[in-house]
Amino acid sequence: MLHSIREGVIALDPGGRIRLVNDEAARLLGLAPDSADAVAGRPLDDVLGEGRTTDVLSGRVAGRDLLTVQGRRVLVANRMPTRDGGAVATLRDRTELEHLSRELDSTRGLIDALRAQDHEHANRLHTVLGLLELGLHEEAAEFVTEVVGVHRSTAEQVTEKVHDPLLAALLVGKTTVAAERGVPLRLADSTLLPDRLVDPGGLVTIVGNLVDNALDAAAGSAAPLVEVDLHAEGRTAVLHVRDSGPGVPAARREEIFTEGWSTKQPSRHRERGLGLALVRRLAQRQGGSAWAGEAADGGAEFSVVLPEALR
Score class of each variant (00 low, 15 high):
178 A>R: 01
190 S>I: 01
232 A>K: 01
65 D>M: 08
116 A>V: 01
14 P>V: 06
120 E>D: 13
131 L>R: 12
204 V>P: 02
18 I>L: 15
127 T>W: 11
126 H>D: 15
121 H>Q: 09
34 D>I: 05
267 S>H: 13
16 G>K: 11
258 T>W: 00
68 T>Y: 02
85 G>D: 09
175 T>L: 03
168 A>D: 07
309 A>N: 05
137 H>P: 00
67 L>R: 11
230 L>G: 09
99 H>D: 13
291 W>Y: 13
28 L>A: 11
255 E>P: 00
310 L>R: 06
36 A>H: 09
288 G>Q: 02
301 E>W: 06
55 D>N: 02
97 L>T: 13
273 G>W: 03
46 D>F: 07
46 D>L: 11
283 A>V: 04
219 A>Y: 08
192 L>S: 15
75 L>D: 12
119 H>P: 00
296 A>F: 10
146 E>F: 07
52 R>Q: 14
35 S>D: 15
261 W>N: 07
172 V>P: 00
174 K>R: 11
234 G>Q: 10
149 G>T: 09
115 R>P: 01
307 P>Y: 06
36 A>G: 14
33 P>D: 01
216 D>S: 08
214 A>W: 08
18 I>W: 10
64 R>F: 07
74 V>G: 07
208 G>M: 10
244 S>H: 08
182 G>T: 06
309 A>R: 06
267 S>I: 00
3 H>G: 04
226 V>F: 08
215 L>G: 12
290 A>F: 05
21 V>M: 15
40 A>P: 00
20 L>Y: 12
58 S>Q: 11
167 L>I: 01
72 R>A: 15
45 D>G: 02
233 E>G: 13
212 D>V: 05
47 V>F: 08
246 P>F: 03
106 S>H: 06
310 L>V: 08
92 R>I: 12
190 S>E: 15
12 L>E: 04
157 Q>Y: 01
120 E>C: 05
169 A>W: 02
166 L>N: 04
261 W>F: 10
254 E>D: 15
225 L>D: 13
32 A>Y: 03
278 L>H: 12
199 D>E: 15
38 A>P: 03
13 D>P: 01
296 A>Y: 04
301 E>G: 06
201 G>R: 03
232 A>E: 13
239 L>P: 08
190 S>H: 07
251 A>R: 07
36 A>D: 09
231 H>C: 07
196 R>G: 04
110 L>A: 10
35 S>I: 01
8 G>S: 08
8 G>K: 09
169 A>D: 14
308 E>R: 14
77 A>P: 00
22 N>E: 03
130 G>E: 07
38 A>M: 13
116 A>Y: 07
209 N>P: 00
311 R>M: 06
308 E>M: 08
225 L>C: 06
147 V>D: 03
144 V>W: 05
301 E>R: 14
88 V>C: 07
53 T>M: 12
99 H>V: 07
196 R>V: 10
265 Q>I: 00
247 G>Y: 07
95 T>P: 01
254 E>A: 14
285 R>M: 14
262 S>G: 03
223 A>E: 15
301 E>I: 10
266 P>N: 03
206 I>Q: 13
61 V>S: 07
173 G>P: 00
284 Q>A: 13
